[in-house]
Amino acid sequence: MYTRYAGATMPTRVPEPVLRPATANDSDALADIWYHGWRDGHLGHVPATLLAYRRPADFRSRMPGQLECTTVATIGERLVGFVTVRADEVEQLYVDAAARGTGTAAKLLRFGESAIAATYQRAWLAVVAGNARARRFYERQGWQDRGAMDYAAATADGGTVVVPSRCYEKIISRPKASSS
């Protein structure tokens, strides 16, 4: 990251994000990051019927159920991103627009991978097919596009909306050698 100073471009040191478990006090800030990040990556790439279930209030009501599986990133006092891991899936990964390019997403993803590696050898995640920016990011992080998948996005009324997505996978740990 660079800053202009008196006509010269000088490198600016961006503070390293700090990771910690999410708390109930984080819920509203996380819902806001999730809402805006979701819109950035999904608008124009998901069925229009899903938009009725992805309003700010919907993210606020869904966030408390995510907290126990969520790790947040902070820079200073500011909450800038989060990763949610369930079993072998990186379910959510969002970074505030102002913190993109700071290494926060990569650090959150590595944390998610290590959490999964404690139990599983392979991790997976779904990316909306049209979200080229996210797809490039995951590929740079060593994830492999394993093909098309229909992701069933949950709705508040108990239904689902099928979202055309891509399934990405990564081998995150090797099988332990058996002792015979």
Rank of each mutant, 00 (worst) to 15 (best):
T119P: 02
R110N: 10
G65E: 09
G81F: 03
A48E: 15
R86H: 05
D150W: 09
G142P: 08
R60A: 14
R135D: 14
G41W: 08
G101D: 13
L109A: 01
R60P: 04
N131K: 09
W124I: 03
L79A: 01
T155C: 14
Y138N: 01
N131I: 10
G159Y: 09
R100W: 14
M63A: 06
A148E: 12
V46M: 12
T155A: 05
R55D: 15
D150P: 06
A152Y: 07
H45M: 08
R100D: 12
D58Q: 04
I75S: 09
A117H: 00
Q66G: 07
V128Q: 02
E68V: 07
G44Q: 12
V95I: 09
A152M: 13
A132I: 13
D88E: 06
V128S: 06
T155S: 06
T160M: 02
Y138K: 01
G130T: 11
R54W: 08
A98W: 10
P47Q: 00
A129P: 03
T160W: 04
G81M: 02
A117E: 01
Y120L: 02
L51C: 06
F82I: 02
Y151P: 13
A126Q: 14
E68D: 13
G81T: 04
L108N: 04
L93A: 04
K107P: 02
A115Y: 09
R62S: 10
R140K: 13
C69V: 04
T74A: 13
E139P: 06
G159R: 00
R86D: 07
G76Y: 01
F59L: 09
D157Q: 07
T71A: 03
A123S: 08
L125G: 03
K107H: 10
S61F: 03
I116G: 02
V128C: 11
F111H: 15
G147Q: 15
A115T: 12
L109K: 05
A117Q: 00
E91K: 01
V90D: 00
T155E: 05
R146A: 15
R136L: 09
W124Y: 14
R140P: 11
D58S: 05
G41T: 07
D88Q: 05
Q121S: 10
L108W: 04
T102C: 10
V46E: 11
V95L: 12
A52N: 09
